[in-house]
Amino acid sequence: MMAYMNPGPHYSVNALALSGPSVDLMHQAVPYPSAPRKQRRERTTFTRSQLEELEALFAKTQYPDVYAREEVALKINLPESRVQVWFKNRRAKCRQQRQQQKQQQQPPGGQAKARPAKRKAGTSPRPSTDVCPDPLGISDSYSPPLPGPSGSPTTAVATVSIWSPASESPLPEAQRAGLVASGPSLTSAPYAMTYAPASAFCSSPSAYGSPSSYFSGLDPYLSPMVPQLGGPALSPLSGPSVGPSLAQSPTSLSGQSYGAYSPVDSLEFKDPTGTWKFTYNPMDPLDYKDQSAWKFQIL
């Protein structure tokens, strides 16, 4: 009977010793046993002879290597770790002494450095960015050149030099007046198309007034536009458009034309069986010896 009264063996659950049927240790109110408190290391007290050895090595170098620390530790009968900690504390003490010396050398008012006064946003004049500046400075420094007289040679050079070769001289006033084509001369031969040399188009003023001019072949195509416009036809070669000034309004060009419109200028042929003959000019830059190549039959 006494065997049943004795408590059973101890069981360990999660490293906790349980005594038989008792489960009081598993209750929430019972805390787990805490780790033992780490003991504080005792402070090391250095003797005068030990301090002399350490100070002598510190005077040589503030960062001794492990071999120098072990050698000193053997002399003063201390572990190497204590020597390492002593050098660490000695360097910190040396830095603190240097900072105190710097503070003593500075004057009393030198510690508080005078800061520059901050400028207020409204006091300083700042350039306004509302208006974009002129990058080319046209509004201040540029002045347009004065327009020359209508009959000045410089204007003629600016007008005619675009179309004339570089080897030719500017046309005088008398020749510029001949550039304007007359109405009857352009409409006299509506079906004849003559190819003149390129030099005649640039230099010869008579080429624009003769039936064999460069633009005589364009007349049949330009004249039928007159009834559609409801007024006189516009002429690209009329009046002052080739003269001194090219800047004319469309209203000033509306009254200039080749001449009176005639039914002869239409595109319809009077004789459907007729042929169109292209007159060959020996001055043509295209060297075609066979003139029969310039004739064709309209079917």
Rank of each mutant, 00 (worst) to 15 (best):
Q99P: 11
Q96I: 07
P145G: 03
C94R: 13
L246M: 04
P7S: 04
A29M: 11
A56K: 04
A35G: 03
H10P: 06
G209M: 12
Q101E: 02
P79C: 06
T279V: 07
P33E: 05
M5K: 01
G122A: 03
S262F: 13
P125R: 12
T279C: 05
P184Y: 10
F87K: 12
L78C: 14
S204H: 10
A17F: 12
A29T: 04
V226E: 01
G20C: 12
G274A: 01
P64Y: 14
C202F: 13
A35E: 07
L253S: 02
S212D: 01
G122N: 09
E52S: 05
A56T: 06
A117I: 01
C202Y: 09
L18I: 06
L179H: 07
H10R: 08
I76E: 14
C94W: 03
P79F: 13
Q248Y: 10
K120F: 02
A156K: 03
A207H: 04
S213D: 01
Q248K: 11
L186Y: 03
P127E: 08
P227W: 13
P285T: 09
D134S: 09
M283V: 04
M26I: 11
I298M: 00
A177V: 12
P232D: 03
Q50Y: 12
P170C: 03
P144Y: 01
Q28M: 14
W276Q: 00
A198S: 07
D287G: 13
G8H: 05
R41D: 13
T155Q: 06
R40K: 02
P232G: 03
D271M: 15
W86G: 12
E42K: 14
D265L: 15
G20Y: 12
T61W: 08
A158R: 07
Y258M: 02
A117E: 04
A198K: 05
Y280C: 10
V83I: 06
A156S: 02
P240Y: 13
G239D: 01
S188W: 09
G20L: 13
Y191T: 01
A3W: 14
K88V: 13
G243F: 12
S164I: 15
A29H: 06
S150C: 04
T154Q: 03
G148I: 13
S241Q: 03
A174C: 07
T155E: 01
R82Y: 15
V157S: 06
E55V: 09
K118Q: 01
Q106T: 02
Y261C: 04
Q96P: 11
S167A: 08
D219F: 15
K88M: 15
E80Y: 06
P172D: 07
K270R: 10
R48T: 09
P236Y: 15
V131S: 07
A92H: 15
K60S: 08
R126Y: 03
A181Q: 08
S81H: 06
F296W: 03
L136W: 08
Q103A: 07
D130L: 11
A17Q: 04
P172N: 05
